[in-house]
Design a protein around this nucleic acid. Structure first.
Lengths: 236, 236
DNA sequence: TAGATTGTTAATCGATTAACAATC
DNA sequence: TAGATTGTTAATCGATTAACAATC
C-alpha cells in the first residue's frame, strides 16, 4: 500500500516527540488522510490497535517498517552520475531507511574513478557483475533519456525486478518488473496547469484566439471550429 | 488532468519520427494507457480528432501544450541549493518546457554568492522581493525538512499558490495553494515493499516470528496474537 | 459506399468514506 | 459501567473501460 510510508513518517514524528499512543483520528490528521481510510489500511496489516485506546506508536512503527521491508538492508545501484545521480548518492534519507548505495555507475570516462559520497564511480561495463556480486535488488536510473532503455534492458536481463526511473521516458519492461517513475518536469507541468487555471479561470475563453495562432497547414480552418465548438462546459 | 504530460511526451516522440497522424489506439499504447481513457481525456480539451482518421500529431501537441500552460513562460524559484537544488537548477527538462529558473536561494552564507547553472545564489532574506520583482509563480522547495514549512509559510504569504516540495515533510498550506510532493525515499520504500512481496510471497508467514522479535514492553504478548491472527488473506 | 476511428454513453470496477457494532 | 476508539460493513463516489452510434 502506497500510503504506508506516509504513516510511517507521521509516526516517527510522534515518536520523536515522545508520544506513546495515538488514535486513528490524530494519526490521520498527521498523515493528511481520512481516518477511516487509515484504519482500513492498518487493518490490512493486522489488528495492531486497541479499541478505546488507539495504536502504540513504537509497535506500529515496527510493524509498518517490517511490512515495507525496511527491516532489511536493500542494496541499491545508481546508474548515471550526473547532477541528479550525485544528489541521490548524497541523499541522506536512503541510508536511514534501510537502503544502501552499493554502486555508482556511469559511461563517461571523465567521471569513472572519481569519488562521490564515499564511493568510487564504476564503469557501466561492470553493471552485470556489480548487480550479481553485491546482491543489488533495486536499480535507480538517472541517465539521459536516450540511455535509459538500454540500461533498463541490461538490468532486467541481469535479474533486477525493481527500478526507480528518473529519465523522462516510459520504460518497456518484461512482466513482473516494477518501475516507479519520477519525472520532475511532469510535476512542474501539472503545477503549471493548475496555476494557469487559477489565473485565467479556465482556458476556454482564450481557446478561439489561441487556435487562431496555430501555424498548422492541413485542414485547420475546419478543425479550429472544433477548438471553439459548443459541447463543452467550462470545467475539468 | 495529470496524464496530459504523458500524452505530450508520446506525441513529441511521434513528431520526431515524422509521423503526422496517430490513432487513439496507437497513442494510447505509446503512453501506456487504455485507448478509451485517452479519448475521454482528449475530448475534455475539445474535439481535436477526426473520425476514421485519428489525431493530427502537431496540432494535438499544440493544443495540449496550450492546455498545460506550456506556451507561457513560468518563472520558478528554487529554495535550497544542496545537492538536489543544484541538480534541479541544472535539469535541462525545465527550460525546454517553458520553465525558467528565475532565482536560486539559500540560507547558507557559504553558498550564497556562488554561481550555479548561470545564476548567482541569493540569500533567503531576498525571498519575498525576488518573488515580487521577478513575477515568480512556482516555488521549488529543496531545503532540509526542518526548514521547509518556514519557507512554505513565507512564499504563500508572498502570494505563491504553486509549490513543488522535495523536503520529506507534509506541508501545511492555506486553501487554494497547490503542493506537489516528490519524496525520493518514499518511492524507494514502495519498491522495497513490492520487492519483499516477490521474495517472500507475502509477509504473513514470517509475521509470527518477526513479532516475536519485537522488543516492546507493554502488553505485547496479547498484541502479538493480533499479528498472527487469522482474518487475513495472503494479498494486499 | 465500406472501412476506420472518434466522441460519448452506460456498465463496471475499485477506492473512499460514513456509520456503527464490537470491545477495550 | 460509561466513554472512547477500533475494525469492518455498507453506501457513496469517482475513475476506468467496453461498447457503439456518429461520422469522416
Amino acid at each position: 500500500m502506497a500510503r504506508l510510508p506516509l504513516y510511517l513518517r507521521a509516526l516517527n514524528g510522534l515518536a520523536e516527540r515522545g508520544i506513546a499512543t495515538v488514535s486513528s483520528e490524530d494519526l490521520a490528521v498527521g498523515a493528511g488522510v481520512n481516518s477511516a481510510k487509515l484504519r482500513k489500511d492498518l487493518s490490512h496489516l493486522g489488528s495492531y490497535g486497541t479499541r478505546g485506546v488507539g495504536y502504540d506508536v513504537d509497535y506500529l512503527i515496527y510493524q509498518i517498517s517490517r511490512e515495507l521491508g525496511l527491516t532489511q538492508d536493500w542494496a541499491v545501484a545508481i546508474v548515471g552520475v550526473g547532477n541528479l545521480g550525485r544528489a541521490l548518492a548524497n541523499y541522506g534519507g536512503f541510508v536511514s531507511r534501510g537502503f544502501r548505495v552499493a554502486s555508482l555507475l556511469d559511461a563517461d570516462a571523465e567521471v569513472v574513478g572519481t569519488g562521490i559520497a564515499g564511493l568510487v564511480v564504476e564503469h557501466i561495463d561492470s553493471l552485470e557483475s556489480v548487480i550479481r556480486e553485491r546482491a543489488v535488488s533495486i536499480v535507480v536510473i538517472a541517465t539521459p533519456a536516450a540511455a535509459a532503455q538500454e540500461v533498463c534492458n541490461r538490468v532486467t536481463a541481469a535479474g533486477i525486478t525493481s527500478i526507480l526511473n528518473f529519465a523522462p521516458v516510459v520504460l518497456t519492461v518484461p512482466d513482473g518488473v516494477d518501475v516507479r517513475k519520477v519525472d520532475l518536469s511532469i510535476e512542474l507541468q501539472i503545477l503549471a496547469f493548475h496555476e494557469q487555471r487559477k489565473v485565467t479561470g479556465g482556458v476556454d475563453e482564450t481557446a478561439a484566439a489561441a487556435a487562431d495562432q496555430w501555424p498548422g497547414t492541413v485542414g485547420m480552418s475546419e478543425r479550429n471550429q472544433g477548438a471553439s465548438a459548443p459541447p463543452r462546459g467550462g470545467r475539468t
